[in-house]
Write a protein that binds this DNA or RNA. Sequence first.
DNA 1: TTCCGACAGTGGGGTCGCAAT
DNA 2: ATTGCGACCCCACTATCGGAA
Length: 523
Amino acid sequence: MHSEGMLFAELARVSQEVAATSARTRKTALLAELFRDAEADDVPIVIPYLAGRLPQGRLGIGWKLLSRQIAPATGPTLTVREVNARLTEIGTVSGTGSQAERSRLVGALLAAATEHEQRFLIGLLTGEVRQGALDALAAEGLAAATGAPPDAVRRAVMLAGSLQAVAGALLADGPPALDRFRLTVGRPVWPMLAHTASSVAEAVGKLGECAVEEKLDGIRVQVHRDGDDVRIHTRTLEDITDRLPELVAVARELGEQRFILDGEVIALDENGRPRPFQETSGRVSSRVDVESAARQVPVSPVFFDALSVDGRELLDLPFAERHAELARLVPEPMRVRRTLAHGPDDVAAAEEFLTETLARGHEGVVVKGLDAPYSAGRRGASWLKIKPVHTLDLVVLGAEWGSGRRTGKLSNLHLGARNPDGSFAMLGKTFKGMTDALLAWQTERLPELAAEEHRWGFTLRPELVVEIAYDGLQRSSRYPAGVALRFARLVRYREDKSPAEADTVETVLAAHPGVAARPGAAG
DNA sequence: TTCCGACAGTGGGGTCGCAAT
DNA sequence: ATTGCGACCCCACTATCGGAA
């Protein structure tokens, strides 16, 4: 006897129901029910699908390839296993003509899917299932389905770096299987992340005994060494070992055979000052001619935490003890610069450290509680980052229709600074910082200023001024002034200000002297 | 009862590699 | 040679739920 397993339509139905439910407890219950019904062979597929991901990862299929309409099937026939097999096939197509072949295969799969199934499938392929439940709720559902403690399931997932692996073991062998998922050198762990604080004083006030560390504007790396075997992973656990030969060499020279370190790689100039993020990013993205990329833009590792050293698991130790291990293993220049603060009395010294750090060209500081464990996969309350915030008064040049819960609302604003001739140069867009009330307001108000209407929204007469917060400028080949705002967000509308009082391109550039526009790019 | 941590969603700019043009 | 697309790097902020205080 051989079962065909679960119908794909069942997954689409549950996803739809999860999306239509707001209570998380109910979402979890719906997921748990589905997970319990899945046969062992289907589990490795059903779990990631309902967490909004494909077990194969991304397949090179995006919105463009999925944009054409395909007549849906009239009835559900696809099984979970068949869908998975066909997606695996699509993922392996490569070479000349591969886009056309992929498109054909995706089209055939969509043609075999009902309308509901198509919607779910497109969500999976684009990574935008939008059912209000991803890995975290799927893990909760898994716990509910198996009777395992949710905290233990979450911890296993973080240490395994994989929900799928934990799900398979748990559904096959029950809660005792969780014990198998321990921190393992060579297997990446979801990294700990930081919250934002508005000032050093606030962060030190909250954390008491703490370390104040430089925040470097580079790429997060988790480095595993087991003898000669070194692996390097990014924040999302992607393996980038082959792109960073100099980091592999460094790891092999440290004084222990087995360890897991957490840190950042960053490109520095000859004076040790950070190069623009774009250069570090470009270097770390280079995969084809790594040797020449490494010669042109070498990167330096800067470590700030140790998760495991010489077989000892350090995750649950206080940061102070983990750092002591780090300091024992990693020599000074490869450790992040830091100072200690013992509470409110040391706020001034911590602020001074931030000032120095900024003067050295770095982006800010991270304040870390000395008694806190390493909260893998979480935005721990014990890591607080502080970066200076700049603001500008810019003019709204356009507005785009939003999507998802912002459908029907004008959302993304086009932002411009004043040119000497009275025209405006666009410096970027923002959709951040808007409350529902503000979205409603600007959806009413902005069309009154319409200059042109488009499918995507409006271009507007330059009459409204907005106060915009941002983290800095970066070079841009897209915008006319040759620069773009980094992480722009709306602070408030300034209806008290006229466009003639808005900031000029010149003042914007002057505020960031390191980021000159490229010759000929000035608008 | 109120507060706050965790989550998901809504997108921003950039780079690279690859396929199509 | 150039362009468009997709994957992934950095990321801020708001709404909501539900447990903690």
